[in-house]
């Protein structure tokens, strides 16, 4: 087995999940110039709700095909997260839109903590296992082992991103979103209901986050009230890497960050002569973030302002 190829595959799978979450950060930032700190927690809520539904279904009907249970979980988690995203914006951000910048940042942190602790109240502190209901088949591709789940994650992310791209580029709603990204004031003078567009950005971002949360818990086989924090931090780094506010950038940044992390974790032991091991994996996202901020604050695709939504 080729370790390099294997790490690339693992990185791309993880990266496509990061990309989905990064899209949520970047959509909101593109319109509001606000970092929605609570976005990572939305993925966590999505994962835990989906798992609860799957668990309940399997309890009632143990013979239910795994795929169906997962789809049912997603069908509950996605609308629940959409509602959550909408509520967060209405309650915590909208009243502060005219306030100094520090204010919405602080409420965003508050919302994160509330979501984490409510999740802890409901689901407890322990890790919740993802039941082994999905097909376990693996394939040999270019020297790497690829599981059916990995293929499924990449495909589904691709479909979700294509859907988003189509919506932003080809529909009236998408056009309105892009207009708000250019200038909220001008857009509202053109008769666009800016509040509705902002809500929509939160709702769509949250739907993507729910999907990503479900994927992460299926991929790692567990979910936890604290899982959203690191995922959020990494996805945000991915969004900055690609150029925050730029949808294509979020996808590129997500994939790239996934690969960097996987390669870094795979080789850090060799590079440092065993001094640092793979448990430093979480450090890479952060180093990438700092490096981007220092050398190219606009991100990889930062200047293509016209494309942002």
């Amino acid at each position: 087995m080729d370790i390099f190829a294997q790490q690339i595959v693992n990185g791309l799978v993880l990266g496509s999940i990061y990309a989905l979450v990064a899209l949520g950060y970047t959509m909101v930032y593109g319109i509001l110039e606000l970092i929605n700190f609570a976005h990572g927690e939305v993925t966590m809520v999505g994962a835990l709700i989906a798992l609860a539904v799957i668990g309940a279904l399997l309890g009632v009907a143990p013979d239910l095909p795994g795929i169906l249970a997962v789809i049912a979980g997603a069908l509950v988690a996605i609308p629940a997260c959409m509602l959550l995203g909408y509520t967060i914006e209405r309650v915590a951000y909208r009243p502060l839109r005219q306030a100094p910048r520090l204010a919405p940042l602080i409420t965003a942190i508050g919302v994160s903590i509330i979501l984490q602790n409510v999740a802890m109240l409901i689901w407890g502190r322990q890790y919740i296992a993802f039941p082994p209901i999905l097909p376990q088949a693996t394939f040999q591709i270019a020297g790497a082992q690829v599981s059916a789940l990995q293929i499924f994650i990449v495909l589904l992310s691709g479909v979700a991103m294509a859907g988003l791209w189509f919506m932003v580029q080809r529909t009236r709603l998408g056009r309105a979103m892009r207009a708000c990204g250019e200038s909220r004031e001008t857009a509202s003078l053109m008769g666009i209901d800016v509040n509705r567009i902002i809500s929509t950005a939160f709702i769509i971002g949250s739907a993507l986050a729910a999907i990503a949360g479900l994927m992460v818990s299926a991929y790692y086989g567990l979910a936890h009230y604290y899982m959203g924090f690191m995922l959020g931090l990494k996805a945000f780094s991915a969004a900055v890497l690609g150029g925050i506010g730029n949808l294509g950038g979020a996808v590129l940044g997500g994939l790239l960050l996934g690969v960097i992390e996987a390669l870094g974790a795979g080789y850090i032991g060799d590079i440092t002569g065993g001094f640092l091991g793979s448990h430093y994996q979480d450090v890479f996202a952060f180093l990438v973030l700092i490096a981007v901020l220092v050398f190219r604050p606009s991100g990889l695709l930062g200047e293509r302002v016209a494309q942002r939504a």
Partner: peptide, 11 residues
């Protein structure tokens, strides 16, 4: 939970 609420409500 109270801290989180406090941050939001205070702001």
């Amino acid at each position: 939970l109270i801290f989180g609420l406090a941050l939001v409500l205070m702001m």
